[in-house]
Nucleic acid binder design. Structure first.
Lengths: 209, 209
DNA sequence: ACTAGTTATACTAACTTAGTTTCCAGCGTA
DNA sequence: TACGCTGGAAACTAAGTTAGTATAACTAGT
């Protein structure tokens, strides 16, 4: 029965309504910044009253938190899949991990980052820490393997290396720069990986290419 | 002298300070939406007091208006240049006009459009009218020439045709779709022009290719 | 010293919005 | 029909934000 289900599960995380709310909130918050999205907006677009919205989430902060958690879980799921799929292929894993990361980071549009930084430094710190954590976990593992097998020099820390990658990608894999350079996104990607890798691979690794 | 210059020109549109303000306001308003940018923000980032800011512009609305006017003039200047540069080359003119238009339209980020639509429908109408005007003026002229010379069929109005172009460009010339299709922006552009043109060119025009 | 223009800052009046409450319509059940 | 539950519409409040103004102190040219 209805009542029984409610009683049995006071926090139905799989509640479809809840999922709908999170999905919309995610899209809107990340695209327009949370300052630019009011609870009235969300309720109206969801076709529900604020009352109902507030029965699902205790407040705006909770909703933002839920959106971030949702996103976070999705990223981790993707990274897991890639890591296990490409366990034996260092280059493929690196390539896919990077493009996956870029795709996900793109969902955070400037207005959201601006809002977070402006009026919620704690959240900014939280997001950064989460990012750091993921980077260390997945890229660290990958690059450690590369190191152990002698493919990657050991005097550059994995985190720094990834930042170099992401920075280069952000600077180059966008429509404007790609047009200037006459490259496809894939070509841009490959070029970056090649360039950075060839400056990173040791002599022994170089002979193994 | 200083005083003389001020007296001689009570509205110094070429005042460098004024231009600096407009430039910053443009960037910020269009990128983050005008609701997301406060006058305090602007003053702080300009390194001037709000008082000074308000001596240059009577209010936020005036500043938004000035930003739009500035942008509008820039677009028109670009379109003029292209039109006169490529007067004899229909395809080159079309190509450049389209890419120019796309580049300019890209400056209006979603948060700005959202703000305009949400809380200033009059301004939205104004912007749309201005857009319509430019489209009719520049593309209308180009396509009319194409019609007169028998290159373009006459049963499709210029405005509609341009909307088809812009819609296709927006859908295809973005990193995600380009990556899926494995195209450079230039290739995507050319493909769109080719596809739409070949469905639009008359038999006589076809034989002239 | 005086003036003109500036920055910094405090202030207020209007507005926005998160969160609450009230009322009511629908609807399944007894 | 009556009852009870759910959720939509909308009014409301209290807190916070911000456009716009006013004040004081500073600097440079005259």
């Amino acid at each position: 029965m209805y009542r029984d289900r409610k009683q049995a599960n006071q926090l139905p995380v799989d509640d479809p309504a809840r999922q709908r709310i999170i999905a919309l909130a995610r899209r809107h918050f990340f695209a327009y910044g949370f300052r630019g999205v009011t609870m009235d907006d969300l309720a109206k677009e969801l076709g529900m009253s604020k009352k109902t919205l507030y029965t699902h989430f205790s407040g705006k902060a909770a909703l933002i938190g839920a959106a971030l958690l949702d996103k976070s879980r999705e990223i981790e799921k993707d990274l897991d899949r890639i890591t296990s799929d490409c366990a034996s292929d260092f280059l493929a894993a690196l390539y896919q991990l990077l493009s996956c990361m870029q795709l996900h980071l793109e969902e955070f549009r400037p207005p959201f980052l601006r809002d977070v930084q402006r009026e919620s430094p704690e959240m900014f710190k939280l997001v950064e820490e989460r990012r750091e954590d993921l980077i260390h976990r997945y890229f660290g593992k990958l690059l450690d393997e590369g190191r152990k097998s002698g493919m990657i020099r050991e005097d550059i820390q994995a985190g720094l290396l990834l930042e170099i990658f992401l920075g280069a990608i952000q600077a180059i894999v966008n429509p404007k720069k790609l047009a200037e350079l006459g490259l496809t996104p894939k070509e841009g990607f490959s070029a970056i990986i090649t360039v950075i890798l060839e400056g990173v691979i040791t002599e022994t690794g170089r002979s193994n290419l």
